[in-house]
Design a protein around this nucleic acid. Structure first.
Lengths: 178, 178
DNA sequence: AGTTGCAATGCAACTCGTTGCATAGTATCT
DNA sequence: AGATACTATGCAACGAGTTGCATTGCAACT
């Protein structure tokens, strides 16, 4: 599994509470990996037991209790081990593809709004990535920044790909509408 | 869930046994959705109970028993219903992205072989898609073929994207090696 | 006659991930 | 004073997906 490792990376970038991590998974980190707070809390507990992370409880004076997690030496070693471990590229699993192939056996026209919606969503994300790109990655970049930028660039590349593909697919579906 | 619907589409394209489906999920269908035989058998049973598919048992004279499934009217209606149902675009979840960001806290060089391996795998798939493209989609296409082609084109587009991105990322990692 | 391999199906146990709910304190608005 | 919303954590139950193993029968090789 890799949520473990995604959390390790995230905690190395900045020690945080589960709640904070969950919020970051709704934004920056979420652009390359997503998770719910449930999962995050459970994985954090598991990793604490395995001594990959350590929690410092900050008793709540002005706010509810908060456990700030940071990565231990063991956790850091585990990350390094995992980095070098080979993995296979993941298989594609996209609902739109199934639907498109399924359109041959149903009402192809009913897919048009769906595709338009996806096109809009991808355009949205692309804009969002572009904003981040200009805001955070336009000057000189240290190693960490450069790596983060490379990750962002995959997002940009793929959203562009999606946009173009949605256009194409919409063209095809519309050509059936005669 | 959509393995259900992926199977419906697949069975509409050609009625098959679970085993056959599993094999097709290792090739053509697997290019846009993958599954193990376990999952397939379980989903088929469930769908049979829901009367989305019907099985015709072909008692084995020369081979072990075989259940050939085909889609019922109910199943077909369910597919149409699902086609029109809106869904959100899926979030990205790619291990390479996590690893790349993690490389800031470990040995970045150890990622190079991994990236080279992914590049090779994507190049491989791209070649494979190109072969299919020439073989199956070069003449005039009926509606079904055109839709299948559109799905294949997304595969081609994304593998190309991956290739270019792997090159870029490798360049970056190598620039750290000085 | 025995081993290997493939076609075909399936059970059981497990991990991963989602959903719904519960709690409890703090802050802010009306 | 009460309603609403946000911070912060967690349990319990479920559903999706993987892994390992088991079975049966045929075919082909050795």
């Amino acid at each position: 599994m890799s949520l473990d490792h995604a959390l390790l990376v995230s905690l190395l970038e900045k020690p945080s509470s589960g709640y904070e991590l969950a919020r970051r998974f709704d934004r920056s980190i979420g652009y390359f990996w997503h998770a719910t707070h449930q999962q995050i809390y459970r994985v954090l507990s598991r990793m604490e037991e395995a001594d990959w992370v350590a929690a410092e409880v900050q008793a709540g004076e002005t706010a509810p209790d908060r456990k700030e997690y940071s990565v231990t030496a063991t956790g850091s070693a585990e990350l390094s081990r995992w980095l070098a471990e080979p993995t296979e590229p993941e298989g594609v699993r996209d609902i739109l593809m199934v639907k498109l192939r399924g359109a041959a056996f149903g009402d192809a026209g009913s897919l048009i709004p769906e595709l338009e919606h996806h096109r809009a969503a991808h355009a949205n994300r692309l804009t969002c990535y572009r904003v981040i790109e200009t805001r955070d990655f336009s000057g000189a970049l240290d190693r960490q920044r450069a790596l983060q930028y490379q990750v962002l660039k995959s997002g940009i590349r793929f959203e562009q790909g999606w946009l173009e593909w949605c256009e194409e697919a919409l063209g095809l579906l519309r050509s059936f509408e005669q």
